[in-house]
Design a binder for these strands. Structure first.
Length: 386
RNA sequence: GCAGGGGUUCCCGAGUGGCCAAAGGGGGCGGGCUGUAAACCCGCUGGCUCAGCCUUCAGAGGUUCGAAUCCUCUCCCCUGCACCA
């Protein structure tokens, strides 16, 4: 394959490749390049939004290069500047291990696990002395740090910025020094950090990395998909969830999702069909073909036809022969407050075997064995007390 | 350090002694409509043993029949001035 075609494939969907010629040059070195990506490990899932840069990593891996995933166990303690979270307590090693494992379990749905290195940044940041920190800090000026858009806005808007947050880009940059990254991947929101990596690497006498940024995937609410917003689809999330969530994206986002996620143009025809195909593709990548059929069947049955799912978990009724207090049962079965349960009840959102429930207290005989439904998606089969 | 401005329910943001569980918007939830979605309409959105009761307006005390609203102290944020290795 010609270098041009190769670069074209490696940088598909990229917004920026900085500097462009540098990538070309590095590729001609003939050695495997080290392609770095850092993701927040504290999130329950790696999202399909994070999947976009992961797909780039995969493309590099398919050409023989090495993916380097950074577990920011050390940086996590500071909290991402944009998230504006408070400093978090140090996580214990067992917890970090669990998170890292989960992280990798998600990522492997996209990348090639055989060509991946997973590195914890506490490995080098944890032993960084104050003198070394000062050396790192000297590589950058306040003005440079404040160029970063979110800092600039917060500074202008009198929103507090802590010194530790200002250090965040430097720590991330130092990761690039430590793992000797040739390329760093990230969303366009990471452009600044990726470029900081370049200048810090240079200050440490290393060849600067190439910064490759990809667009941020928008979610169904029109904002960028983010694990902290709850508007995400997790790479290892259950197939049914992935399917349903994909179907709930607005039609307007179909083009973007096909381009960025599937890396194909939207198929011609009805939006509905293109969306179904997209949902199948997403589930297939994470869980395989069988899961696709089950997830689609579930979607058709529960969402389109308003029926009950194939499998419903059981919930025992309270003991005793007296009438059963329905709000309490709903609350217990679905993890709601009884006030929420009462509201659902009052609004006709609660059904028993498909029939809207009216009363607050019902005899056990009228409940046992029936399927309780709260809203469209919550189901539980009521069984006699144990 | 000095002076001033602030901290309200998931978020933004009104409210300056009773009519405040606290306007409005966002988000979320339920119902309707529907091709999933969007749009649109209606309703709900602290908790509970729910026509009543209980706990909330940074924290702790106090004044008052009664406080998110007044006073005192504390914590945190912002602005200006001062300091400036």
């Amino acid at each position: 394959m010609s270098t041009l075609a190769l670069i074209d494939r490696l940088t598909r969907n990229a917004v920026d490749v900085l500097p462009h010629r540098e990538l070309e040059r590095k590729l001609e070195l003939g050695r495997p390049l080290r392609v770095k990506l850092g993701i927040d490990v504290t999130a329950p899932y790696v999202t399909i939004g994070n999947g976009i840069p992961l797909q780039r990593m995969r493309a590099f891996q398919d050409e023989g290069h090495v993916g380097v995933l950074i577990v920011g166990d050390y940086t996590t303690r500071i909290g991402d500047p944009s998230g504006r979270s408070r400093e978090r307590p140090m996580l214990d090693p067992a917890e970090i291990d669990r998170m890292a494992e989960n992280f990798f379990d998600n990522a492997r749905r996209v990348i090639d696990p055989e060509r991946t290195e997973v590195r914890f940044n506490s490995e080098w940041l944890g032993s960084l002395g104050f003198a070394e920190l000062l050396r790192l800090a000297r590589t950058t000026t306040v003005a440079q740090i404040l160029e970063r858009d979110d800092f600039a806005k917060r500074f202008a808007g009198n929103v507090p910025i802590s010194i530790s947050e200002l250090l965040y880009p430097l720590m991330q940059a130092y990761d690039s020094v430590a793992v000797e990254a040739d390329v760093e991947l990230g969303g366009t929101d990471q452009t600044y950090n990726l470029l900081a990596g370049r200048s810090v690497q240079q200050a440490y006498g290393l060849e600067p990395q190439v910064a490759l940024t990809v667009p941020l995937l928008l979610s169904w609410d029109g904002t960028r998909m983010s694990s902290s917003r709850g508007n995400y689809i997790g790479l290892s999330e259950p197939a049914e969830e992935q399917f349903g969530k994909t179907m709930s994206i607005p039609d307007e986002l179909l083009g973007q999702w096909w381009t960025l996620v599937v890396e194909q143009p939207v198929p011609d025809g009805a939006a509905m069909d293109a969306k179904l195909e997209l949902a199948r593709w997403i589930v297939r990548r994470s869980h395989g073909e069988e899961a696709v059929q089950a997830a689609e069947a579930h979607f058709t049955r529960v969402v389109r036809e308003g029926g009950a799912p194939a499998e419903i978990s059981s919930h025992p009724l309270p003991a005793g022969d007296g009438p059963v207090h329905v709000p309490a049962v709903i609350a217990a079965a679905f993890g709601l407050s009884t006030s929420e349960a009462r509201r659902l009840l009052a609004q006709g959102g609660v059904k028993l075997d498909g029939v809207v429930v009216k009363g607050l207290d019902l005899p056990q005989a009228e409940l046992a064995g029936k399927v309780l439904q709260a809203g469209k998606r919550r189901f539980a089969r009521l069984v006699p007390p144990v």
